[in-house]
Design a protein around this nucleic acid. Structure first.
Lengths: 145, 145
DNA sequence: GTAATTGCAAATTATTTGCATTGCC
DNA sequence: GGCAATGCAAATAATTTGCAATTAC
């Protein structure tokens, strides 16, 4: 089974692009990041390991990772794009706490089926969707008293 | 029945704010705009009628309209916030053509119910959600041959 | 060797804000 | 009259891009 690094190297060479130390470091740290990192987050972590890496490189590498399929962009609606590793479990949606930012990944077959049906009703070919549920998580409900 | 302008005037006075000619014009043109305008779109239209109005005023007024409930912000995930009039029919989601940008407003009770259920499973109190379905509309499918 | 990549700084884009002036209520 | 609103221009924030110098293949 290919490691992500191998997979990325393959992707790059297939596209006539090159593997570089910067890209290796960024990928490594990206994969090790638990949760939904922004380019800025990742840049900070990366400069820890190698202060010479510029943020433009981080932005550019995240785009590459997204195109390669290793990363997925998520948009919570604040002005920042975050990325999460694509673990191959495929698509999922998000349930987000509006107070603490806690984030639960969700998938629901019923909803996906209905979405497909709705698109069909309008004659659309559905290619993708995003769904974000916003609310208050159990922990934050506790603290509200 | 209150007109939107009256409603807005009430809202403003309730908040100790003032109705101004600029706000009147912006509201009027906003309501007359068919579809999901950005601040920039609206600004262009508004300067047509009164070239002296600044874009900051348009941005500020859109925020006010949103807070008053007359406008709803929608975020399609390109970096621009769009607004649609809130016609009182309440919440809806969006089915968007990725080629021509055509936009269909959708509501589905089944999906909303499932969302509620999912949130409950995780102990969340659900306050709102956004859902965007992206695909290709019938017209654009035709042109693809 | 050569085209891709890098870091930097400057450019962009969408939006916000400070401030002196103007204008509702 | 007084506080809110305006227009402008400058400030932010996130991201992109131009470019000369470097480096992977």
């Amino acid at each position: 089974m290919r490691t992500p690094a191998e997979y990325f190297a393959e992707y790059l060479s297939r596209k006539g692009l090159k593997m570089t130390p910067q890209r290796k470091i960024i990928l490594q740290i990206f994969l090790a990041s638990s949760d939904h990192v922004s380019a800025e987050d990742l840049y900070k972590k990366v400069t820890h390991k190698n202060p010479a890496i510029g943020q433009a490189t981080v932005y550019r590498t995240l785009k590459l990772l997204e195109n390669s399929g290793l990363a997925v962009a998520v948009d919570f609606g604040d002005g920042t794009t975050r990325y999460e590793p694509n673990d191959g479990r495929g698509h999922h949606d998000h349930l987000i706490c509006e107070l603490c930012g806690k984030n639960v990944e969700i998938v629901d077959k019923d909803i996906e089926q209905r979405q497909q049906k709705i698109a069909e009703q309008y004659g659309f070919t559905l290619s993708r969707h995003t769904m974000y549920l916003f609310g208050i998580c159990p922990a934050c409900q506790q603290e509200e008293n």
